[in-house]
Simulated scan of single mutants.
Amino acid sequence: MNPADEILDIVDENDEVVGQAPRGEATARGLRHRCVFIEARDPEGRIFVHRRTSAKAVFPSYYDMFVGGVVGAGETYGDAALREAGEELGVPGLPRPEPLFKFLYEDGEHRWWSYVHQVRCALPVRPQVEEVAWHAFLSDGELEHRLGDRLWVPDGLEAYHRLRAFRAGRAGRTAGPAA
């Protein structure tokens, strides 16, 4: 199936379903939908970082420190996180990602409820070639050092800063169960 044809739940400002639309239409019209972000770390605690392929409809060729994607119609955040992490990392038997918090991402053009998860994955990873053009595992310090010298996906960058605040125990997040 063409990813643009995937049916998504369209949600309101409270993350309640108000309709459905194909992914391509939701993106083109800026309809609010649901996404998952999964921070994947290797057994040494390094973060999976990658560059998106140039064929991606949203933020092509940008760098990201999360794997993830849209939540399909009727799919739970938790199920989407497991599916997306498994697909993008190419790791069989991946444990279910742990839900951390969710927030509403809005940048004027894009709007989606975003649920941030974390997972440890065994090596080697075999990233999905349709999604990932380059990848590496970086320490927290290496990632911080590279934040200023690359084009990072803006929603992932916001999720990253919110995750750091979450871990530091600061406010500025919307927590809830991974439905």
Rank of each mutant, 00 (worst) to 15 (best):
A81G: 08
G90L: 09
K102I: 00
P60W: 13
A73V: 02
F66D: 02
V70T: 15
K56S: 14
D64G: 13
E75R: 11
A80Y: 11
A80I: 09
Y62R: 14
G78W: 02
G93W: 02
L94F: 07
L82W: 15
G78S: 15
T53Y: 01
Y63L: 14
A73I: 02
F66W: 04
V67D: 03
E87C: 07
S54D: 12
L89I: 10
G86C: 09
E88H: 04
K56Y: 02
Y62A: 15
G69R: 04
P92R: 09
E87D: 09
M65D: 12
S61G: 14
Y63G: 01
P92L: 09
A73M: 02
A55V: 04
P99H: 11
P95Q: 03
G86H: 08
M65V: 07
E88K: 14
G68R: 10
E98N: 02
P97S: 02
T76G: 14
V67I: 15
P97T: 03
P92I: 06
P60N: 12
G68V: 08
E84C: 07
A73L: 04
T76D: 04
A73D: 10
F101D: 05
E75M: 15
S61H: 10
A55T: 13
L89A: 07
G90I: 08
E87H: 11
P60R: 13
E87S: 11
G93F: 04
E75F: 12
K102W: 03
G78F: 01
P92A: 10
S61Y: 08
G93K: 02
G69C: 05
L82K: 09
V91C: 07
Y62L: 14
G74R: 01
P60V: 13
L94E: 00
T53G: 00
A85Q: 04
P92T: 03
Y62C: 15
P95L: 03
F101H: 01
G72L: 15
L89F: 09
T53A: 00
S54M: 06
P99G: 13
A80E: 07
G78D: 13
S54N: 07
G90D: 08
V71K: 05
P99C: 07
